[in-house]
Simulated scan of single mutants.
Amino acid sequence: MKLWSTDGQCAELLLKHGANIHLPSEDSGETALHVAAKHGLYDHAHLYLRHGADVDARSTRGETALGLVCRQAPDAAEDALQLCRLLVVRGAKLDARDELRRSPLHEACGAANNVLVRFLLRRGADVNAIDYNGISPLGCVLQAAAFKQELRPHLVVQLLLNYGSQKIWPHAFAKVLVLVGAGGVEAGWAMGGLTQHGCMGV
């Protein structure tokens, strides 16, 4: 019996009648916990974990529930943060990699979600993790900056630099900060050691 209900009482009833908490979907290989994480359903995730759900179960793409939560946009940051805390307390691996070697921190940076980035970094996520394309978390937020300016990606850049991110692509870095506004550039100079010529300080 599969467990995909978005209704909390219904999900609990299904579990009581033998629904398989570990059964993945045929197409994506996602478990009930993956679905709860993807949709930000904290109560469901808590229920599934209490019934023994594998916190680090992998989809066919190698995705964990934590990685899926970290894709949430900043407008859902507080709900996503609560869910991230739950998963980490239950033992979720901070640096679990998917099939593209992307970590939850890569995902949070790609979404320009500074709340989740801060959470992951404070708990020891690898700030210089590299995916199969050679992209670090800093690279992810720089790629996203040009079309996510309203999300203030420079805040994520500041966090990454403060936690020891390698300072890559110095000229491109300054140009991207220009895209997010003068405030972002000034913050970049202050937090990341940029000079006003667009080069990294030593």
Rank of each mutant, 00 (worst) to 15 (best):
A11P: 05
L13H: 15
L15Q: 15
A19K: 10
N20V: 01
I21S: 01
L23R: 05
S25K: 06
E26T: 00
D27W: 12
G29D: 04
A36P: 04
A37V: 07
L41N: 14
L41R: 15
D43L: 04
L49R: 15
G52W: 08
D56Q: 11
A57Y: 12
A57V: 08
G67Q: 13
L68G: 08
L68R: 09
V69C: 04
C70G: 06
C70S: 00
A76H: 15
A76V: 00
E78N: 11
L81N: 09
R85Q: 14
E99N: 13
L100N: 15
R101C: 00
P104A: 03
P104N: 09
L105H: 12
E107S: 12
A111E: 06
A111T: 05
V117E: 10
V117N: 09
L120K: 13
A125W: 03
A125G: 03
V127F: 04
A129K: 01
D131G: 02
N133C: 04
N133M: 08
I135W: 14
G139L: 03
L142V: 01
Q143V: 02
Q149K: 10
R152V: 03
Q158W: 08
K167I: 03
K175I: 06
V176S: 10
L177V: 01
V178W: 12
L179M: 07
G193K: 14
T195F: 02
M200V: 08
